[in-house]
Design a protein around this nucleic acid. Structure first.
Lengths: 180, 180
DNA sequence: TTGAAGTGTTTTTTATAATGAACACATGCT
DNA sequence: AGCATGTGTTCATTATAAAAAACACTTCAA
């Protein structure tokens, strides 16, 4: 169901970069990127070549994929990073297809922002601030939340998160259904 | 190493035709043919779709592939048919890559012939006639062989087999290295 | 502060997989 | 015989994967 997520999990588990893996198996690094984001549907031969460099065989690879689907517990190092640019979103589970919930462990670096154009998507979301401070804007309401404070709103409402402080802000959030 | 052979073995094991399998998984029947002959390198997604119709998952599929590589014994029904047009060649083993020997259980229907243009390829080959009669021509020599008779020659010599009798002719043969 | 080397992503081109239709052959039925 | 239905293969077209290069960004060292 999720070849890209499985490859990502196995690669990062081994501490390899996309380029290092690409070098070891003789595949273009861009191809690894596209596979991990499920943007392409790799051929069996190519996937075999990549997986051998892990090193692993295809039977083990797909067995691991099935294990992932039934995974219950995640070590801190196993959360999947899906953020970027100073905002870290570490997701519980690599493949959320068919799941109801998207849980994230978020860290906003100082002066980071989800952007001037407000976010909006179907569903509902909530979160609790663990440390630091965050300015949350939802529709026409705005608040600065600190440790222990929380939020909950309909994701259809335009919303925005900004860390206007000098400390990183750590939040644990949940959304239903998963949005990206 | 041999996705095509593995798919062939699993499909025929279940008594399915290429078209029946194609119908069940929603794939073009020609595609199944091309995969089985290793003429194309299917995508993971497509192979998954096909394998699910067997029904099986990819981990099991590739585990089976590894089993095949170490297979020692073959039931009569498991020999792989690689002949056609009245001449049956039933090969021991589906994938001969890296193997030294090609063993065949051959049946020539009455009035069949390997063709007017003589065969030739590197290696050596031999065989024993089990039943029926066969006319064997090698270079400038010709003989009619019956049950218990045998042949052995350098495959570089032009050769031809013709069943000129009224009974099917059954031969067990070996060649090294495998030629097709 | 500049630049070199690292990261993952995106784009353009080329190669190839996948389809759908046609083909060639066999079997069985009327 | 003649036709329908089955088999696997092959071909031309379309869709898509894979490579190579450019891109945007970070980190670290001079």
């Amino acid at each position: 169901m999720d070849v890209g997520g499985t490859l990502y999990a196995l690669r990062t588990q081994r501490g390899l970069s996309q380029r290092e893996l690409a070098r070891r198996c003789g595949v273009a690094n861009g191809t690894i990127s596209l596979i991990e984001s499920n943007a392409i549907n790799p051929s069996v031969g190519l996937l075999r070549q990549i997986v051998h460099a892990l090193p692993m065989n295809l039977s083990e690879f797909f067995a691991f994929e099935h294990l992932e689907e039934r995974k219950l517990f995640y070590r801190a190092s196993e959360l999947r990073e899906i953020g970027g640019k100073g905002i870290s979103y570490r997701q519980i589970g690599t493949n959320l297809n068919g799941r109801a919930l998207q849980m994230l462990d978020e860290v906003y670096a100082p002066r980071t922002d989800t952007g001037k154009t407000m976010l909006h998507h179907t569903g509902e979301e909530g979160g609790v601030v663990i440390s630091g401070e965050i300015e949350v804007t939802v529709a026409d309401q705005r608040a600065i939340l600190g440790p222990g404070d929380a939020y909950y709103f309909d994701s259809n409402l335009p919303h925005r998160f900004r860390n206007i402080g000098k400390e990183p802000c750590h939040i644990v959030s949940a959304a239903t259904p998963p949005s990206f």
